[in-house]
Amino acid sequence: MVDIGVGLIAIAAGLAVGLTGLASAIAEKDIGAAAVGAMTEDVSLFGKGLILTVLPETIVIFGLVIAILLIFVM
């Protein structure tokens, strides 16, 4: 029998990654669409668009860090 605390940690870690992943996805969806729109007007905006699109990735990385801390440190 696994300790219930371990299970809760696992759930918490999953939520941390999953929810932040969703949040990143929602943010990137809008930015990505706008970036593609801008690119159709001016192809040289590709670089800026790419950078802007990966900006919200930070959210999920924070989530991942929390999940890692939960699993490995607690």
Binding site: E57, T58, I61, F62, L64, V65, I68
Partner: peptide, 12 residues
């Protein structure tokens, strides 16, 4: 904290 992506991506 944003730099923790260095560890996170290495791990993934």
């Amino acid at each position: 904290l944003s730099y923790t992506r260095l560890a996170a991506i290495a791990m993934s």
